[in-house]
Simulated scan of single mutants.
Amino acid sequence: MNILVLIPASKKHKAELEGAAPDAEFAYSSIEAATDKQVASADVIVGNLPAARLHTASHLQLIQLNSAGYDKYAAPGALPADAVLCCATGAYGQAVSEHLFAEILAVMKKLPGYRDLQHSHQWDDLGEVATPAGANVLVLGAGDIGTHLAALFSAVGSHVTGVRRHAVTAQAPFERMATMDDLPALLPHADIVASVLPSTPATRGIADAGFFAAMKPGAYFGNAGRGDLVDQPALISALESGHLAGAAIDVCTPEPLSAGNALWDAPNLLLTPHISGFYHLPATLDNIVRIAAHNIRALQGTGDFRSRVEL
């Protein structure tokens, strides 16, 4: 079995991967440097090789993505017949949740404003701030990332409601679990709405003018899921009018954001360039390698695949 690894693997990571298939031939490269010959001979690819290059992977049995998203790889004909597609759901919970929690808290405490004052050498008081303690928090997307995020808010005394596609019984750290159909009734009572939803036909554009108008005056909005969830002009309008007290987003459309986009100058908005995930937190790469090693074993008949995408 030939295994092509396209993620940055340390000595520790290589030992873990090779331990999952001692008899396999491993090749380590980068996405940019991987040759057509390597791709054509690979039985397993670990990493997000562009889907357009997979047409040459005639031996492919498993592709293990390093991302939680998988849209382009799940398209009809993207993979060879019978190839297994696994994503990295479960690897990003800590990294993305900590980033979004920190962003929202920073906006509530007006820290970006104080940073601006520091740069202009001004010693001013920006006034009253908000707290997540006792706040009603709505987390859109109650999977791995959403559960990590709920735990962070719960730890500081927030009351957290999770929102999923399908109804389930609430378990800690969620006090309540609801469905997307419940959003109109939930939005007016939420002090913080934080989304980690993926991009799907059902979620694209869901945070529109009506969504923001339904939110509680003075509430906060955060998004670390996908940028196409949000109608950005509607978000800007809600911030400019003062209906929203602030927003924190790590994703937007397009990416990268053009220099002239109005989102840059929206008031009380903290924007980061889609960096909450990837490998910025070393534990994330460790998690991806762990998932990949598990699925390499599963390909050999040892257990079930983890984070498998049903095609």
Rank of each mutant, 00 (worst) to 15 (best):
Val160Met: 11
Ile288Cys: 08
Asp144Val: 01
Thr200Pro: 00
Phe212Glu: 12
Val251Thr: 10
Ala88Arg: 01
Pro198Trp: 02
Asn2Thr: 05
Lys109Met: 02
Asp228Ser: 14
Asp36Tyr: 00
His243Cys: 03
Asp231Ser: 02
His166Ser: 15
Asp191Lys: 02
Leu100His: 04
Tyr92Trp: 12
Leu271Cys: 05
Ala42Trp: 07
His294Arg: 11
Val44Asn: 10
Ala292Gly: 12
Ala151Gly: 15
Val230Thr: 15
Gln122Ile: 01
Arg115Glu: 10
Phe26Gln: 10
Leu62Met: 01
Thr272Ile: 03
Ala167His: 13
Met177Ala: 09
Thr284Gln: 09
Ser30Tyr: 01
Ala172Asp: 11
Pro50Gly: 05
Trp264Gln: 10
Asn268Gly: 01
Leu186Cys: 09
Ala266Cys: 08
Met1Val: 07
Lys110Ile: 00
Pro282Leu: 01
His121Asn: 12
Leu140Cys: 14
Asp182Ser: 08
Leu140Tyr: 03
Leu239Ala: 05
Lys12Asn: 12
Leu285His: 06
Val196Ser: 05
Asp265Gln: 14
Arg53Gln: 13
Gly246Tyr: 09
Thr179Trp: 01
Asn261Glu: 10
Ser195Phe: 05
Ala150Ile: 07
Trp123Cys: 04
Gly227His: 09
Gly127Asp: 07
Ala292Asn: 11
Thr179Pro: 03
Gly225Lys: 09
Leu138Gly: 11
Leu111Val: 04
Ala262Asn: 08
Leu299Ser: 07
Val39Phe: 01
Ala142Met: 09
Gly303Met: 09
Ala20Gly: 08
Pro22Tyr: 02
Asp116Arg: 14
Leu6Trp: 00
Val289Phe: 06
Glu32Asp: 13
His59Thr: 02
Gly93Ile: 06
Val156Thr: 10
Leu152His: 14
Lys110Trp: 01
His166Asp: 12
Pro267Ile: 02
Ser10His: 04
Lys37Asp: 15
Glu16Leu: 14
Ala245Trp: 07
Leu60Ile: 02
Ala292Gln: 11
